[in-house]
Design a protein around this nucleic acid. Structure first.
Lengths: 89, 89
DNA sequence: TCATATTATGCGCTTAAGCGAATAATATGG
DNA sequence: CCATATTATTCGCTTAAGCGCATAATATGA
């Protein structure tokens, strides 16, 4: 029984979150400046988010997700199947 | 074909997020003070989160979710099935 | 009802987000 | 190799998070 659950959309720390945002942005062919424009944020702010700034604001997060056609979900903590070593990269 | 997708774990704005946190906290029988203690945050900070402070920090969010045994997931924006009017409460 | 628990607010403080504006550093492709 | 695009970083500024500490406001239950 194989279960493909797309572990990659999980953000347990700011770095992971930044990576997710970066990936989503690139998938959409946007530069930081373009994303910032759409979100009403500076390119510098997008850069900070993607590099893992832990103090990014909830409001900013929600705005960016919205622009990327993503949304913020809360889920029960998935038991670490062992594939939890993809934390850093 | 019925699909129960638990729409309620979705946070599109700070108020929704606050409500989710409050619900999860109560389910676990915790007071704001107890949750704050476990998370290393003030009761006042938990209060602010739950009442929808838009400037809550990513770090704080992740800490609180962790204490509640929840996690932060990013998902493609679900097409509004129409049940998107449960936004405010 | 009324004491107790819980949640919401307040003050002053330190730290930093996000801003505009700019530049340094790096990546990319022709 | 190099011009151009992209990303990272800096400066000064305003605003507010989260802190300790404290209290007001509200909910809860015996």
């Amino acid at each position: 029984m194989i279960e493909v659950k797309n572990m990659s959309d999980l953000a347990r720390n700011p770095k992971q979150f930044g990576n997710l945002i970066r990936r989503a942005r690139k998938q959409r062919g946007l530069s930081q400046a373009m994303l910032g424009e759409k979100a009403g944020l500076r390119q510098a702010t997008i850069s900070l988010i993607e590099t893992g700034n832990p103090a990014t604001t909830l409001e900013t997060i929600l705005t960016v997700l919205s622009v990327l056609d993503l949304e913020f979900r809360i889920a029960p903590r998935s038991k670490g199947t062992a594939a939890d070593i993809e934390d850093m990269f």
